[in-house]
Nucleic acid binder design. Sequence first.
DNA 1: GCCGAATAAGTACAAATGTACGCGAAAGAC
DNA 2: GTCTTTCGCGTACATTTGTACTTATTCGGC
Lengths: 134, 134
Amino acid sequence: MVDRPSLSKGEMAVARALWEVGPATVRQVHEKVERNEPMSFVTVQTYLRRLEAKGHANSRLDGRVRIYSGRSRPGTVIRSTVNELVDRLFGGDSLPLVRHLIEERGIDESGLAELRELISRLEAEMAPSGRKPS
Amino acid sequence: MVDRPSLSKGEMAVARALWEVGPATVRQVHEKVERNEPMSFVTVQTYLRRLEAKGHANSRLDGRVRIYSGRSRPGTVIRSTVNELVDRLFGGDSLPLVRHLIEERGIDESGLAELRELISRLEAEMAPSGRKPS
DNA sequence: GCCGAATAAGTACAAATGTACGCGAAAGAC
DNA sequence: GTCTTTCGCGTACATTTGTACTTATTCGGC
């Protein structure tokens, strides 16, 4: 798996929009982005170009318009971004971050239920054999 | 609470070192940083100066050496950094990040136990009144 | 076949970031 | 009291990021 450069704030916003709308023209991505924050059309254009340069997007010219599509999958990008953050902020230990998120950012009831289940599953997975997570 | 500019990658590394060693000279901070990654002494100096400029550190001249000390407390900085990340990466919804962290980064058994407890507490807190988290 | 709207693509440019040099002052060695 | 080492501090500078204008091109309507 190629290790593409990580994304900056603005790039991330555009990338997210692109992931959500799927292959799309600049205009469509722009519209998506603007639902969250104001950003000039040309700025979106620039970000898309940069995303492509960094290998996070592909594009092809369809007649007169350029169609961009995501290349890295969200999961991958998110993973490396998060990993970077965890390393940087907590020296690689993710528990404090999880604690922080749960405590400070409010997760609703169904979210809590889901987490409870997830935790049970993991405990069940490791307890019998006593295996540690890799 | 003043809203200080957020920290960049490098600044964060130095800030963490500063928090850990407590009030210290550039040299001491540098030594701490270098335990994790190589970074030139003067670079650390620069980061410390920038941290002070951004209001995250204080310093005083003690004779000939400058003693830096953390100003913002780690919790505060971490909170805003994490919040920013969650907004950018998940549009403000922290659950996916939590899920990701728990699933992908391996939390050990005692960590899981702690989380389970935390979740129970929160569920107990909100269930009776049906109150949603702010 | 000309006009305006839309678009791609090049370019611009200030701010932030990463990384560091060099000078002058101070402190200790001798 | 000079020499050397150690610092602080100002400065530097390339790269990345944030944000956008401009120019040339094309398409659809008249």
